[in-house]
Amino acid sequence: MPVRVAESSAPSQVSGTNSGHTSSPAYTLLSVGQAFSGTQNVSSLQKEEAWRVNVRIQGCDLEHGYLCGTMEALNVPMADTPIVVTFWEGEIVDTKNYTFYTGKWEASPEDDKRHWTKFPSFTPLLSQVENDGGKSLDLSNYPYIFMRWKEQYFVNVGTDCGLTIAGFYYVCFSCSDGSINGFYYDPNSRYLYFFLVFYIFVN
């Protein structure tokens, strides 16, 4: 989400409940029109905050590893409006169009590995990613889909709303239950080790 708490210095935690959509094919759950909702938490030394998050997929081009959508943050404590909507574009790590190494947005290979390894599902892939960025991996039948989501602009508010979209999300989608969790990376907060995480389920 478009939120960066400058004083954050610790990873936040995730929470959520399964809504029961466990039998749908993975890419059906990532198709246009699918909606997800859940909770986004921020932890810092000073305070902990949480708010509801709604995500809707607006476009998906699997052949080119692309998807996009909107993200709504509800009742964010520092926002001036009850709902903040952003438009985001995503990269699917398919080792054909995109690898685990971001190569932009001021994310180094070390930043990539530090964030991807926060997902237990990434651990079996680590050694191969360290060898060649994961280019030789076949992820077509892997039970998780890894993505990067980059918010491009605010939809319903101006840039002076008090929030930022300077960073991007490392995202992991579970093919078994349709849940998504992610960690936010903001290059402006790299020395604070700031991470933001959300956990959302298909509606």
Score class of each variant (00 low, 15 high):
residue 71 M to W: 09
residue 61 D to A: 06
residue 77 P to I: 12
residue 108 S to Q: 06
residue 190 R to K: 12
residue 31 S to M: 11
residue 103 G to C: 01
residue 201 F to Q: 13
residue 82 P to G: 11
residue 44 S to V: 07
residue 196 L to A: 13
residue 52 R to Y: 13
residue 84 V to E: 11
residue 163 L to S: 08
residue 113 K to V: 13
residue 127 S to P: 06
residue 47 K to Y: 12
residue 111 D to L: 05
residue 9 S to F: 09
residue 81 T to P: 07
residue 22 T to P: 04
residue 97 N to M: 06
residue 124 P to G: 07
residue 133 G to Y: 10
residue 143 P to G: 00
residue 131 N to W: 12
residue 120 P to S: 02
residue 25 P to H: 07
residue 188 N to D: 14
residue 158 G to T: 14
residue 144 Y to S: 11
residue 121 S to M: 00
residue 174 S to R: 06
residue 129 V to A: 07
residue 145 I to Y: 03
residue 160 D to P: 08
residue 128 Q to G: 14
residue 195 F to Y: 11
residue 63 E to C: 08
residue 28 T to M: 11
residue 128 Q to V: 12
residue 145 I to C: 07
residue 177 D to I: 02
residue 173 F to C: 00
residue 57 I to C: 03
residue 174 S to Q: 05
residue 91 E to H: 13
residue 4 R to T: 02
residue 123 T to D: 14
residue 68 C to D: 03
residue 130 E to D: 07
residue 88 W to I: 05
residue 166 A to W: 04
residue 120 P to T: 02
residue 183 F to N: 08
residue 104 K to V: 02
residue 136 S to N: 14
residue 15 S to K: 14
residue 15 S to R: 14
residue 185 Y to D: 07
residue 173 F to M: 00
residue 56 R to S: 09
residue 77 P to R: 10
residue 26 A to D: 08
residue 86 T to N: 06
residue 34 Q to T: 15
residue 72 E to H: 07
residue 64 H to D: 12
residue 112 D to V: 03
residue 40 Q to K: 06
residue 63 E to I: 01
residue 181 N to M: 02
residue 93 V to T: 00
residue 35 A to K: 15
residue 127 S to Y: 09
residue 155 V to Y: 07
residue 155 V to E: 12
residue 54 N to D: 13
residue 113 K to Q: 13
residue 37 S to I: 10
residue 144 Y to G: 00
residue 6 A to M: 14
residue 130 E to R: 12
residue 200 I to Y: 03
residue 5 V to H: 01
residue 164 T to Q: 00
residue 85 V to S: 15
residue 98 Y to P: 05
residue 119 F to S: 02
residue 89 E to H: 09
residue 42 V to F: 11
residue 159 T to Q: 11
residue 43 S to R: 10
residue 146 F to N: 09
residue 25 P to W: 06
residue 131 N to E: 13
residue 160 D to C: 06
residue 134 G to P: 05
residue 74 L to H: 08
residue 26 A to H: 08
residue 25 P to D: 14
residue 71 M to P: 00
residue 107 A to V: 04
residue 200 I to A: 07
residue 57 I to N: 05
residue 31 S to I: 10
residue 139 L to E: 03
residue 36 F to A: 08
residue 28 T to R: 14
residue 79 A to P: 05
residue 170 Y to M: 00
residue 105 W to V: 08
residue 128 Q to L: 10
residue 109 P to S: 05
residue 96 K to G: 05
residue 21 H to C: 11
residue 17 T to C: 11
residue 168 F to V: 00
residue 76 V to S: 01
residue 132 D to R: 09
residue 55 V to D: 04
residue 28 T to V: 13
residue 23 S to T: 12
residue 148 R to T: 04
residue 118 K to W: 05
residue 38 G to D: 03
residue 62 L to R: 13
residue 194 F to V: 07
residue 194 F to Q: 10
residue 69 G to R: 06
residue 97 N to I: 00
residue 119 F to L: 05
residue 44 S to W: 01
residue 134 G to S: 04
residue 182 G to N: 05
residue 47 K to W: 13
residue 75 N to Y: 14
residue 192 L to C: 03
residue 160 D to I: 06
residue 70 T to V: 12
residue 11 P to G: 04
residue 188 N to P: 02
residue 150 K to A: 08
residue 51 W to F: 15
residue 84 V to Q: 10
residue 179 S to P: 09
residue 120 P to M: 03
residue 151 E to I: 07
residue 42 V to Y: 11
residue 20 G to C: 10
residue 124 P to Y: 04
residue 171 V to Q: 02
residue 37 S to K: 14
residue 163 L to M: 13
residue 9 S to I: 10
